[in-house]
Amino acid sequence: MTDVFPPDLIRLIVSFVIVVAFAFTNAAVLVLVERKICGHIQRRPGPFEVGPHGLLQTAVDGVKLMAKQMLVPRNADAGLFRAAPILSFVPPIAALIVVPFARMLQVRDLDIGVLFILSLAAVNVLAILVAGWSSANKYSLFGAIRAVAQNVAYEIPLLLSLLTIVIWVGSFRMSDIVAAQGGFWFAFTPMGFVAFLVYFICGIAETNRAPFDLPEAESELTAGFHTEYAGMGFGLFFLGEYTNMLLVSAIATTLFLGGWNGPAFLTTAGTGFWATVIQTLWFLAKVYGLIVVMIWVRWTYPRVRFDQLLNFCWKILIPISMANLAVTAVWLKL
């Protein structure tokens, strides 16, 4: 039996199913949460018709998206056009395998955990570029161009701010970083706080959400890079976006907010079932807290202009994060 199904393979399949199921559930919940929060910010109830308080709205929307035909424009590069949505949602799901939801709840505790996530997150920009390029639509192309410039620029301060924590802990391993924050979370130290702010701003930009939603900028580019996508093609981009939000918040929680640690006495470092449940709850609470902040920001602010976006990154965020990194390095040497 063990020869036919090695335990590692079973583990792989089970975790794969769990991670994918979690990503889909997360997206389904987040769509509804976002629409509800947005509704209440705008003095309206949000979706209300399907199910009690509109709770089944996402399910109905999902069915609608799946039932729709995915049209491919005549001049489009059909192969790339179909590949782009998959490219956009597979990497963030794959990146979830190194996220430590609790001490014992992590698929793989890789040595290069942080690097692994960042390299997978960088594929997102490729998906947008491919989508915009293959659509044969000028608005899509503009969205793609914007996305590339924006993501390349914002990846630098993002990396620098994460590097601050990495040199502090001296490890890329996610579990080491969480363990290093048992007493105090990095976000409550001066350098950690600056890095956290820079990271969070860059995270919003990386997920292409308002006020940095230039690649899709509805009032300028109709829908930007996904203008030509219908049905599940659009749906997968949507899924990718929400999984990316989850990933960005999960990294922030792990590196800056103490991961699965609760505050002070409410925490447990145990490995039992109930300890794992409590740790997971803390982790998810922090992750969704950050996501709610992202939603709140999105429905409050206007969109920045493209030159302002890049100026903000190159002239403010990168110097700040570099200075922060230098200060941290010097402080650690002392």
């Binding site: 910010i41 705008q42 003095r43 309206r44 006020p211 900028a217 509805e218 009032s219 409050t300 206007p302």
Partner: peptide, 16 residues
């Protein structure tokens, strides 16, 4: 106008 600038919420306030 705010919708053009990418802020969705003000239109619902003013429509109120």
């Amino acid at each position: 106008f705010l919708l053009d600038l990418g802020a969705f919420t003000p239109i619902l306030y003013s429509f109120d």
